[in-house]
């Protein structure tokens, strides 16, 4: 590339970088973070350590013979990186009662896939229902910080029959 072309490239990049960042902010407010975009992890949210509340999901499967089994998100979503599980649970496995929109109940559309995930844990009987149980988890202040309270919020029940 000629020096002039390189110079022009740098000028364009210097103009485009703030513009794309502004776009990330606007699109992120209205929808969700766009991709690809040149941003780094922000960890924007500020948690208060002495009153940390976190919404967490766990899975409970009911089989045709009455057997019930609890599964973690890590066991259910092992096809995805662990750091993606929180985002995927929020966008795909969250009851409309919590999110305000049925769009977050997309997991219902993956019935066959869900059956394939839970069947190996109890091959003797067919799975008939999957409950995604959402709870609010509260922690004590440091330094002990054990889980002190699990408060049920809502459940997304998916019929697997």
């Amino acid at each position: 590339m000629s020096r002039l072309a390189v110079r022009r490239l740098f000028v364009a990049v210097l103009i485009l970088l703030p513009l794309q960042y502004a776009l990330v902010g606007v699109v992120g407010l209205r929808w969700s973070e766009p991709w690809p975009a040149l941003v780094m992890p922000g960890f924007q949210r500020v948690y208060t350590p002495d009153a940390l509340r976190e919404q967490a999901a766990r899975f409970e499967v009911t089989y045709a013979d009455g057997h019930r089994l609890s599964l973690t998100a890590a066991a259910m979503l092992h096809a995805l990186p662990r750091s993606h599980h929180g985002g995927v649970l929020n966008r795909q496995f969250r009851p409309a009662g919590l999110s305000g929109t049925p769009a977050t109940e997309r997991a219902r559309e993956g019935r066959d896939w869900l059956i394939r995930q839970v069947q190996p844990y109890h091959p003797e009987a067919d799975p008939i229902r999957l409950d995604v149980i959402w709870e609010e988890v509260r922690f004590h202040p440091l330094p002990d910080a054990p889980v002190v309270e699990r408060h049920p919020l809502d459940t997304l029940s998916i019929d697997l029959r």
């Binding site: 973070e33 997309r106 219902r108 559309e109």
Partner: peptide, 13 residues
């Protein structure tokens, strides 16, 4: 191997 219904592309291409 994930279900088609899970595909939720972010804003962008």
């Amino acid at each position: 191997t994930l279900p088609e219904g899970f595909f939720l592309p972010p804003p962008g291409p």
